[in-house]
Design a protein around this nucleic acid. Structure first.
Length: 288
DNA sequence: CACCAGGCAAGCC
DNA sequence: GGCTTGCATGGT
């Protein structure tokens, strides 16, 4: 990959294993929006980024080389060798097919707190509605940022949300999830070391701690580990992943989540999270 | 009208 | 331990 500072913005050229649709539409993130073909605007860690995929590479507007090095490079996981990951996963015929479809997926390193709240909202919900609820959450509790005369909102921090009650979330229309969000936010606000301890902990301990949060079960805990803590071995099993796994590996027979999880651990090991994302995107886009 | 969506907690046995 | 049920909301 090469980086050039141009008058229009930063240009990343000769980039492999990256495609905006694959990365932004694979269900891991909720704050990237299509503004024109192959061009997205997203908000992360208080920054608005305007990113466009064109013939000569990826054009990044509203950022700087400094901010790229300091934040976006890691956010987009450009320290990870996807060739090696794919080479390993290609040994599995199903993954080979799924990766041909979603070859440009990269797992983003998202904010820990944002991931917790986002995936509390995600449960038993659909992606367009999750995005809409999170947008309202940011309007209600986040901070304003302006880019090109448009107003954007940051995802609220723990401090922004501390002390909220279920009725404060009424505009979001999150239903029964309101108490999950309030209880979790207030517990985190009252226990400042809870999050920092998890960041330091090994994955097994981190998962146990996450499961102690109200509204966090096995699936949401694995999403938080994968997307918010960069524990790339985590394998969240939702209805789509369950369906595609049962279809390709279990002869279309109804299979328990434990059996699927055990199989995934043995089949993909430390690459479970990547496998899961390729499978999820493939299953959803092809309605398997 | 029923059924589904990146599931979970609580209540059974 | 594992299995079932109720749950808010909005879309098809």
């Amino acid at each position: 990959m090469e980086i050039i500072n141009t008058s229009k913005g930063i240009l990343l050229s000769h980039v492999k294993n990256f495609q905006l649709e694959h990365t932004f539409l694979c269900g891991q993130c909720f704050r990237w929006n299509l503004i024109e073909p192959h061009r997205y605007i997203g908000i992360a860690q208080g920054n608005v980024l305007d990113i466009c995929e064109q013939e000569d590479g990826f054009l990044l507007r509203n950022t700087s080389l400094e901010l790229w090095e300091k934040f976006w490079k890691s956010y987009f996981s450009f320290d990870i060798d996807y060739n090696q990951i794919k080479q390993k996963l290609r040994q599995d015929a199903v993954l080979k097919q799924a990766m041909q479809y979603g070859y440009g997926i990269r797992i983003l390193r998202q904010d820990f707190f944002e991931t917790i709240v986002s995936f509390l909202i995600s449960q038993s919900n659909n992606i367009p509605r999750i995005k809409s609820i999170i947008e309202t959450l940011c309007r209600c509790f986040g901070k304003k940022i302006t880019y090109r005369t448009n107003t954007y909102y940051t995802f609220p921090t723990l401090e922004d949300m501390a002390g909220i009650a279920p009725q404060d979330l009424a505009p979001l229309r999150v239903g029964y999830r309101d108490r999950y969000i309030c209880q979790t936010v207030n517990l985190l606000a009252e226990n400042p070391s809870f999050l920092t301890d998890i960041v330091q902990a090994d994955t097994k301990t981190a998962k146990e701690q996450l499961l102690s949060l109200c509204g966090v079960g096995d699936k949401v805990a694995n999403c938080i580990l994968l997307f918010g803590l960069s524990r790339f071995e985590a394998f969240p099993i939702d209805v789509w992943v369950r369906r595609i796994m049962e279809h390709y590996y279990f002869h279309d027979r109804k299979t328990s989540l434990n059996s699927i999880a055990k199989f995934a651990q043995e089949q993909y090991g430390e690459y479970g999270g990547y496998a899961q994302q390729y499978l999820f995107y493939y299953a959803r886009e092809n309605a398997i």
